[in-house]
Design a protein around this nucleic acid. Structure first.
Lengths: 219, 219
DNA sequence: TTGCACTACCACTTTTGTGGGGTTTTAAGT
DNA sequence: ACTTAAAACCCCACAAAAGTGGTAGTGCAA
């Protein structure tokens, strides 16, 4: 049974898709989320799905950023992007990050199902229109063969504690204030912040909060 | 039994919503279409629905145009617009054409269902956010008769320079780095940041970046 | 001519950020 | 049962910023 998670800020959509899979014998929709924060909160618990179907067009919080960080934090999860459109820049960016599929909204349910199965099986899968775009880009790149083996390091998921402290940092509390609030040593809180910055690969508070917001880790 | 027709160029969406209504005892999804042409072909046969749930964001043919034509040709049919966003122009245009509802994509299935029932019953129905916009426009029309545009007074208007520096702060640069980059004194940059924090009413970088993100001031 | 954006300066305190060093607890795997 | 890995906890000292609370000149526009 393939464990699937849906993320789309359109509640009716996720409810609908879940209903479509309700009696499926190969794919089970484990969870559905309408925001990145809920997704990452759930993943932090450790119950990882096989595949995440991810909408790109989600208001402020870009599905692209969510995808990137899913890979960074949980490299085992396959991600299929589901979008209303495609652009060369977006696709090349996504391919580099390691997505397993890219489907257009013109895709029907049958194709969606088979795509999920293929992806769960380790294959890559995308709409025909997308493949054309990719192949065209490939042709142009055949000339210069520089194999760039960039391993996306799995820095591990954020723990619940980390997410909690992250929120408090976003709420403008200093380390001292946070320490008092959650009954921890100020040192400990500083250590957590240090780890947060390392995990999210940022250099300072500004980056930390921006990325946390993009990822929907804070409210 | 309310006869409902769905029109959305997203096949999975319409299939999903249809599935959600499959066992409903009050609403039955008669047909689903992914293009306006198919919809009008069907309507021409004379089997008219009570309500049409219509997506606005449909690539080629705008949902707005479809709505207008539905009213012109079949005035008895109620139309609910279903969209990812809203704009004042769009809404006023749609209200004039005679739509019976306007729901945002953030609407859940339960609210969608109750809205369809209300609309079928002759009422008008829309999301709370939309109503606010409509009411605001109404207020302005009553109280403010001289068409003088006011600035967004949420947090005081930011100057171009301030927004520019705000973005650089969000990009993880320190004051020194920013000063070098934009050829300003470090003192000046610090002053700008100080003013930014005052204008946005925040206490530190964390709050600054969070608020800036919420307000859409940075990317 | 009043206001404001933009620039610049300074002294001072607080906080952040760096780069280490640990222990204890907890969950997972062989 | 034993090992291991990782979360969660704690500590320190130093460097580097951020943040506070002022002052103040310029030039432009309402």
């Amino acid at each position: 049974m393939i464990k699937l998670i849906l993320l789309d800020d359109h509640p009716v959509f996720v409810q609908g898709v879940k209903a479509l899979f309700s009696r499926d014998e190969e794919i089970s929709v484990e969870e559905t989320f309408t925001s990145g924060i809920d997704l990452f909160k759930h993943l932090a618990k450790g119950d990882l799905p096989d595949v995440i179907l991810l909408d790109i067009d989600m208001g402020k919080v870009s599905g692209v950023e969510v995808a990137k960080n899913v890979f960074q934090l949980y490299s085992s999860i396959k991600v299929i992007m589901f979008s209303t459109y495609f652009s060369n820049e977006l696709i090349s960016e996504l391919l580099e990050t390691g997505i397993s599929g890219y489907l257009l909204k013109s895709t029907g349910f049958g194709e969606l199902k088979s795509s999920i199965k293929k992806v769960a099986d380790g294959k890559f899968c995308c709409s025909g229109e997308i493949m054309e775009v990719i192949l065209e880009g490939y042709k142009n790149q055949v000339t210069n063969l520089d194999a760039h083996e960039e391993e996306t390091k799995d820095s591990g998921p954020l723990s619940e504690r980390e997410v909690e402290l992250l929120q408090l940092i976003a709420d403008e509390l200093t380390m001292k204030e946070i320490a008092e609030k959650v009954f921890l040593s100020e040192h400990t809180v500083k250590t957590h912040r240090k780890n947060l910055m390392a995990k999210l690969d940022v250099k300072n508070t500004a980056g930390l909060i921006k990325k946390a917001f993009i990822l929907g880790l804070i409210e």
